[in-house]
């Protein structure tokens, strides 16, 4: 009773103050969260910003540390365009990325349909093996793939960049998962109507998996666009190579031409940046769906 009497008044004073602090606390938490996110965003975006800004700095001011170039110029772009066939390389990169995306979606849809809809001997084992290939690092299959491509006489060709990517575990796994959750009754109704597997896949399932297919297409396109090591192994001439290799050409034994390198990098990044800007929501969703990053 004594303690009650002692604490009662204090409690009544403290309560409203706590409530006030509670509201303020939430505001502070939100603010702190925003500050952290802003800092993280700056850390992520700054290299991109620095690349773009540096691409406009003249050669003599390339190591300037000002946030904005003291004298902006397009010299680096002119130099980059002259030094390497950047237009051809960008077109090559686009072709490789687009073909890989389309073909891998196609093979992925076929394989995923088989795994999701059919029961056949060793189906689960084969599915698991395909899933496991995703865990095998590129460095492990690099040499066998190289030998294969070399034996086919495809070195220094775009076909060699595309061929090993005709099928991929990610596409099969993502699409099979989506197809497994597709309502069986809709498929059975189509079967009753006389549709066979080919029709069911393309006329019934695929149109309803647009979300997953779009997410996957974005992922495949971006990852193929950004690929560096495999083209580096195969390419011999700039004309049959991709833009990532073109960028690397500015790093020579005599030194690095930072200005043109930044200009070429900016050009190489533009299509991907454009995809991010236009399809921002889908890109984020596709990363979330596939569990990447």
């Amino acid at each position: 009773m004594t303690t009650d009497a002692l604490y009662a008044p204090a409690r009544s004073h403290v309560a409203p103050r706590n409530r006030a602090r509670g509201k303020a606390g939430i505001r502070w938490n939100t603010a702190a969260g925003h500050v952290v996110m802003v800092v993280l965003s700056i850390i992520c975006l700054f290299p991109v910003y620095w690349m773009i800004v540096s691409s406009f700095r003249p050669a003599n001011a390339i190591f300037e540390t000002t946030l904005w170039p003291s004298a902006a110029s397009l010299d680096n772009y002119v130099h980059a365009l002259k030094a390497i066939p950047i237009g051809t390389m960008l077109l090559n990169t686009f072709l490789v990325s687009a073909i890989v995306t389309v073909v891998q979606l196609f093979t992925g849809l076929l394989a995923a349909y088989a795994f999701a809809r059919w029961r056949f001997p060793f189906d689960k084992a084969i599915y698991t093996l395909i899933a496991l290939t995703w865990l095998v690092p590129f460095q492990v299959v690099m040499i066998p793939n190289y030998r294969l491509v070399a034996d086919l006489g495809l070195l220094d060709s775009l076909a060699a960049l595309i061929l090993p990517h005709f099928a991929g575990a990610l596409a099969v796994l993502m699409l099979a998962q989506a197809m497994r959750s597709f309502p069986t009754e809709v498929i059975e109704a189509a079967r009753m109507d006389g549709a066979k597997s080919w029709r069911i896949l393309w006329e019934v399932m695929a149109p309803n998996l647009r979300g997953t297919i779009a997410s996957l297409a974005i992922l495949l396109f971006i990852s193929t666009w950004n690929e560096y090591f495999w083209p580096l192994l195969l390419s011999r001439t700039p004309e049959s190579s991709v833009v990532q290799i073109g960028i690397q050409m500015f790093i020579t034994s005599e030194g690095t031409a930072w200005g043109p390198l930044m200009a070429a990098s900016t050009l190489a990044s533009l299509p991907i940046l454009l995809i991010y800007v236009v399809l921002q929501r889908q890109v984020i969703q596709s990363f979330m769906k596939s569990g990447i990053r």
């Binding site: 309502p183 009754e185 809709v186 059975e188 109704a189 189509a190 009753m192 019934v204 149109p207 309803n208």
Partner: peptide
């Protein structure tokens, strides 16, 4: 026989319509 060749049509519980 294949479902389509039996001369039967089926109405499902969840309608089974193609949403697109």
């Amino acid at each position: 026989l294949d479902p389509a060749d039996r001369g039967c049509a089926m109405v499902f519980q969840n309608y089974a319509l193609c949403p697109h």
